[in-house]
Amino acid sequence: MKISVLIPAYNCAKTLRSTLESVFAQTSPADEIIVLDDGSTDQTPELLRSYQLQIKFFRKPNGGVAETRNALVAAAKNEMIAFIDADDLWHPRYLETQRKLFNLHPNASAYFIAHTSFTGLGEYKWQDEYVKQELRAEYFEAAPFLKRFRTAPGHFVLSFACISATVLRAMGDEPFRERIAEDVYLCWMLPLYGPIVFASAPLLGAYRGTPGSLSSNRLKSAELEIKVLELLEGRFATADIGLEKEFEVAFHSKLRTHAKILMSAGRAEEAHAQLRRSLGRSINPVSLAKSFALLSLSYLPRPLQPKWPPVDRV
Rank of each mutant, 00 (worst) to 15 (best):
Y111A: 01
G266V: 07
S253K: 10
F83A: 03
A82W: 15
L204P: 10
G194Q: 05
A289S: 03
D37P: 09
I84L: 10
K220M: 11
Y51A: 06
G39E: 04
G234V: 01
G266W: 03
R208D: 04
E123F: 00
R313V: 10
P301Q: 11
Q133L: 02
L89V: 09
F83G: 02
K56Q: 14
Y124F: 15
V311G: 04
R235I: 01
F149H: 12
A25E: 12
E230M: 04
F160H: 14
V35D: 07
T116S: 11
A289Q: 09
A222N: 01
D38F: 01
A265E: 13
L300E: 08
T27F: 03
D38N: 15
L135P: 12
N217G: 06
L121P: 05
G280C: 08
D85L: 02
L229R: 00
I261C: 08
R208L: 11
R208N: 13
A165T: 13
A206N: 04
G63S: 12
A142N: 06
S253I: 02
K307R: 15
I33S: 01
I180F: 04
P303E: 07
Y111W: 02
E225T: 07
Y130W: 09
A66T: 11
T41E: 14
F140A: 11
F176N: 02
T41W: 06
E67Y: 11
V197Y: 12
L53Y: 05
S291L: 00
E174G: 01
E174L: 02
F140R: 05
F251V: 00
N284A: 08
F176C: 01
K290N: 05
Y185G: 00
D85C: 03
L48W: 05
S216W: 07
E141K: 14
M171R: 08
P211L: 08
I3H: 05
P211R: 09
A259C: 03
S298Q: 05
C187Y: 15
E174P: 00
A271D: 00
T41N: 13
P195V: 00
E46D: 11
G120D: 06
Y185E: 06
V131D: 02
S18V: 02
P191T: 08
K100N: 09
S264Y: 13
V131E: 11
A165S: 15
V23A: 09
W188D: 00
R169F: 06
L48P: 07
P8F: 02
R276A: 07
E138K: 08
L255E: 00
K254Q: 14
E21G: 06
R169Q: 15
F247I: 08
L295M: 11
I196K: 04
I196A: 03
E21W: 11
K14V: 06
I33T: 01
V184S: 05
A143W: 02
K2D: 12
T151F: 04
L20S: 02
